[in-house]
Design a protein around this nucleic acid. Structure first.
Length: 273
DNA sequence: CCAAGCACCTGACGGC
DNA sequence: TGCCGTCAGGTGCTTG
């Protein structure tokens, strides 16, 4: 699924093309297990004009002129793509017809994703957002480093914990750990403060680069225009088990940490420091 | 506070 | 070809 950079790229693309457009009609192609029923969602959205599209954590928000906001969580395989009207496809969930004869499509092969509408009050009270930690690109690395001060959990688990910092997933956790030279199983309290700060500075760097390169496409991700990203070509470790470390040529290893496959260089990322 | 395991769901891929 | 196991970018819940 899209992590922070991918959702950010989608949000920016959609904002530039959709701000000011009106949703002429909504076709709830297949809304099973989508959090909100078609009966509830369709009348709230039809006829409304889109004011703003933005991202918070890994959630995509589309704000309408009636004060309501649609929140899309894409989870593993969700897509939100804008383009010419086309025939309905296999995994389409909702089609929004716009006033310029284009359409916005929400599709999701695995059906983990969801969409919900919120009033401003409800949005403020949304548990998911309340539990989310700060945005990594709007917070100083040292401040983020302090958030895991004294924690005994594995650093990989903490990077993936959305309450520590929002928007990080398996790709960018592995890539930032490699850049900071930290083994994914290292306990956070065993990492020196300067190295913790370096970790979050590297995280910020890798997120910025990924956004600049249109995100990472492994299998499902495409941006708002349906195009793949390019940052997967810059991976140092993610998905590269068995390949050679770009720095020291050691064979990259993979282990399950925090329930997720974690790929790392055992030489560049020693345990415990 | 933390870890592990499972659940949600569908598809792709490799081995036999 | 087909069957089977494994894996996949996320999150939430339960159990210990």
């Amino acid at each position: 699924m899209p992590e922070l950079p991918e959702v950010e790229v989608i949000a920016r693309g959609l904002h530039s093309t959709l701000a000011g457009r009106t949703v002429v009609s909504v076709d709830p192609v297949d809304m099973t297990r989508l959090s909100e029923s078609a009966e509830s969602l369709v009348p709230k959205v039809e006829g409304r004009t889109i004011k703003k599209v933005y991202r918070r954590a890994k959630v995509l928000f589309i704000q309408l002129d009636n004060g309501l906001t649609m929140a899309f969580h894409l989870k593993m395989t969700g897509r939100v793509v804008h383009g010419p009207v086309r025939p309905c496809e296999r995994h389409d969930r909702i089609l929004f017809a716009l006033d310029d004869r284009t359409q916005l499509c929400f599709s999701d092969m695995r059906r983990f994703g969801y969409v919900r509408t919120f009033t401003p009050d409800e949005l403020e009270q949304w548990d998911f957002l309340k539990r989310c930690g700060p945005e990594p690109l709007e917070t100083k690395a040292a401040v983020l480093a302090d958030r895991i001060e004294g924690r005994k959990a594995r650093i990989k688990a903490l990077l993936l914990d959305q309450s520590v910092v929002a928007g990080v997933g398996n790709i960018y956790a592995d890539e930032s750990l490699f850049r900071a030279g930290i083994h994914p199983e290292t306990r956070a309290h065993q990492i020196s403060r300067p190295r913790r700060t370096k970790l979050f500075a590297e995280l910020q760097d890798v997120l910025k680069q990924a956004i600049a390169e249109n995100g990472s496409s492994i299998r499902d991700y495409v941006n708002a225009d349906g195009d793949a990203g390019a940052f997967q070509n810059s991976f140092n470790v993610y998905g590269k088990k068995g390949e050679l470390c770009t720095v020291c040529k050691t064979v990259l290893k993979a282990e399950k940490v925090a329930g997720r496959t974690s790929t790392f260089c055992s030489k560049c990322q020693p345990k415990g420091r």
